[in-house]
Amino acid sequence: MLEIKNLHAKIGDKEILKGLSLKVNAGEVHAIMGPNGTGKSTLASIIAGKEDYVITAGEILFEGKNLLELSPDERAREGVFLAFQYPVEIPGVSTTNFMKAAVNAKRKHHGLEPIVAKEFLALMNEKRQLVDLDKSYLSRSINEGFSGGEKKRNEIFQMAMLDPKLAILDETDSGLDIDALRIVADGVNKLKNKHNAFLVITHYQRLLNYIVPDYVHIMYDGRIVKTGDKSLALKMEERGYDWIKEEIGV
């Protein structure tokens, strides 16, 4: 589904990704762990299409298509979803109106008529219950005044609404208490099927008890330096990153 080959990217003069390769197939869950500032969010942003970066080498294929040639909104309509590490507050736009615009944009892209009001409301209701988000949040401005946990649940709600092929979760678990973490993880598990894939960025092994990854990648200094199964995450948590540094010899 997703194939990243030898990706190099910089922002300004600063090189952040330094030859990153990754392959994700449908039906898989991949976890990415790594120290702060290593480029995890950068990778997520580049897949989603944020314009601040310059790709100096490498390529990204999504279902065989050159992803880097598509605009961010086209990527989203094709089925790429990013749950933001820091979801943006947008005063004055309700989540309902926002989601209606997003759902209809995707439908239009796939040659469908706009969703009928009743169907839309039913969909909203179903998906918000998945992440235990109160109805009142949907009529409020996007993320405005939401707690950290509410913002993250809103991300998963949006993901459920848009039913992406590839979902990237950028530290969706950071700052969540255990109840919220379970809610988010349950939501993801319900959406998971053999046609979609998840890329889960996290610092904490605890999330991976709930969302069980097929692969765990360790990212360091703009590259994936080690890949293993879920036991790698446990090892990381026990031993810290110094162990990796030694192993890769820096």
């Binding site: 947008i90 997003a102 995707k106 892209h109 996007i142 848009l162």
Partner: peptide, 23 residues
């Protein structure tokens, strides 16, 4: 940042700018 958030949900640029301006 607000614009990118809307784009990342599949909303085209003109519409996204319109929504933000309206908001």
């Amino acid at each position: 940042n607000e614009l990118f958030y809307l784009l990342a949900r599949g909303i085209d640029k003109d519409t996204a700018r319109g929504i933000l301006t309206y908001a």
